[in-house]
């Protein structure tokens, strides 16, 4: 009986929190179904509900193009960053080389500098390279992800050195150790880094805005900003576009939820 009451209380509060957390999303969907111009009305059921916002977002506003741009940038960016992070982390966690500690320290110190500081110098470099309006400009400057590397280093350090030594005795070289031992063992963490970088790229507004001067190269966050002008905001269209734009992140989370939460927690305890 006591257990039942306890369960009821827990579920009751969980439901309350669920509603609180989901409410903005539900409101987004509701608003996206309202006729244009009525985005700020307080009615819960749109009168009449319409899909025209979705239609005009996709046809009139090139949002499909922005979406594809974002997908390309986010997936290549996340993949590249994850590969680099994993390899670098392996080196820092399991290999010996000159200046390892000072180098690692240097990398970490970069984390302490606010990212905004880099925007102008990075832009100057990208501009001189002639990369304005290219995917390269959006992806390459963010390939080196120190935070992801740090996360992986801390995790890989928990893999016993004995395991690596045993593999070495069996004749495995660094490459084999990396691919056959380290990567499979750090799967959860690697997935986490992938998700975090994907999310970073997906949400990145300022950099993509600055390096793209052609509307065809705008990404989703930049495209979303276009629905707001000096005095008005096209709420219904913006919400329809937002609803579309959260799809990839939602899907990734649903599929990879397990890894994601596990990964973050592990880092927290053992890091």
């Amino acid at each position: 009986m006591v257990n039942k009451v306890k369960a009821f209380i827990i579920y009751f509060w969980l439901t309350v929190f669920l509603i609180v957390v989901l409410f903005p999303f539900i409101w987004m969907i509701i608003t996206s179904l309202k006729p244009i111009g009525t985005g700020l009305t307080l009615t819960i059921i749109p009168r009449p509900p319409t899909l025209s916002n979705y239609k005009s977002v996709l046809t009139q506003y090139k949002f499909g193009r922005y979406f594809v741009n974002s997908l390309i940038v986010a997936s290549i960016g996340a993949l590249g960053a994850t590969v680099l992070c994993t390899m670098a982390a392996f080196a820092f966690a399991k290999l010996e080389f000159p200046f390892k500690r000072p180098l690692f320290g240097m990398f970490l110190s970069v984390l302490m500098v606010p990212g905004l500081m880099f925007v102008v110098p990075q832009f100057a470099i990208v501009y001189r390279l002639g990369w304005i309006n290219t995917y390269k400009a959006m992806i390459i400057p963010h390939l080196a992800n120190v935070f992801g590397m740090f996360l992986l280093v801390q995790y890989m350090k928990t893999i016993p050195d004995e395991l690596v030594d045993a593999a070495r005795v069996d004749g495995a070289n660094n490459w084999t150790i990396f691919l056959k031992l380290i990567v499979p063992l750090s799967g959860a963490m690697i997935a986490t880094v992938f998700l975090l970088t994907f999310q970073f790229h997906w949400n990145n507004f300022l950099w993509q805005l600055i390096v793209a001067t052609d509307e065809h190269m705008y990404t989703v966050p930049v495209g979303l900003a276009m629905f707001r002008s000096a005095h008005e905001e096209l709420h219904t269209l913006k919400m329809a576009a937002s609803a579309i734009s959260i799809l990839p992140i939602t899907m990734i989370f649903i599929f990879a939820q397990r890894y994601f939460i596990e990964g973050i927690l592990r880092g927290a305890i053992k890091g």
């Binding site: 102008v120 832009f123 100057a124 300022l206 805005l209 600055i210 001067t213 509307e215 900003a225 276009m226």
Partner: peptide, 18 residues
């Protein structure tokens, strides 16, 4: 070129600086 109203300041300031 159409640029978003929001964020135009950063975009223009960066462009001026470079």
């Amino acid at each position: 070129q159409r640029i978003p109203f929001e964020g135009q300041e950063q975009k223009i300031l960066t462009a001026c600086a470079t």
